[in-house]
Design a protein around this nucleic acid. Structure first.
Length: 215
DNA sequence: GTGTCGATAAACT
DNA sequence: GTTTATCGACACC
């Protein structure tokens, strides 16, 4: 595939546990009204559908909020949380199998000035690592809105492209203590030694194992 | 560097 | 009425 072509639906139409690590090192691109924004994905989590207690679709739950997860892969699932923040996921798996990959952090590459403004931060050497080092920070920096939930991410203004080969580590998922044993499953993936991962992720990664991703 | 805590409202039961 | 796939401020080390 040409490096500038958006990752296609076949890329996303696989189990979330395969797509989540494969998205590490890929470029997230948003041609926003304020200009082109891009960054390299450095932290993801897999949400495995009806058998995953941490998933919104656990035991087949199907609501207006998570409806997009039940549709075809390669669409955005964006929803508000804690009354103030947004979470950005990409639907994976076959249609009717509500899986997804949660995008938790990115290394900003283009449009840093727009991102800093959107985050209410001054742009300097010290702030770049903080622009998108968390799920909701990433949504703010990349100018994602809840109206974009359901959007096709295989060809529109918001999409992914090929990026870099990276080494990654795994650890448990964050913020899902309600999910019991599943909270300890190693379904979070982080680019090894990245300074752009979320703070909580960096800590948990210390106890995880390193894996080399093939080219 | 670490840990605790409150904000805040949509979506859920 | 309760929960929540978070963040930033603050205290403390």
């Amino acid at each position: 595939m040409h490096p500038m072509m958006p990752l296609d639906r076949n890329f996303f139409a696989r189990p979330a546990l395969e797509v989540a690590p494969d998205l590490l090192g890929k470029m997230l691109i948003h041609h926003s009204p304020e200009g082109m924004l891009s960054g390299m994905v450095v932290e993801t989590e897999a949400y495995g559908g009806i058998g995953d207690p941490a998933s919104h679709a656990f035991r087949g739950r199907r609501t207006s909020r998570n409806e997009v997860m039940w549709g075809p892969a390669g669409h955005a699932y964006i929803y508000p949380i804690y009354g103030m923040y947004l979470c950005f996921n990409v639907v994976t798996g076959d249609e009717g199998s509500p899986q997804g990959v949660f995008i938790r952090a990115a290394e900003p590459r283009q449009g840093l000035d727009v991102m800093a403004k959107a985050r209410g931060m001054a742009l300097n050497d010290g702030s770049v690592t903080k622009l998108a080092n968390g799920p909701s920070k990433l949504c703010m920096a990349f100018r994602l809105t809840r109206e974009m939930s359901g959007a096709d991410v295989t060809g529109g203004a918001l999409h992914f492209t090929e990026g870099e080969d990276v080494e990654f580590v795994t650890s448990s998922r964050i913020g899902i203590d309600y999910a019991g044993e599943a909270a300890s499953w190693p379904w979070r993936f982080l680019v090894k030694d990245s300074r752009f991962v979320s703070r909580r992720a960096a800590r948990a990664a210390l106890t995880s194992q390193s894996t080399t991703k093939g080219a």
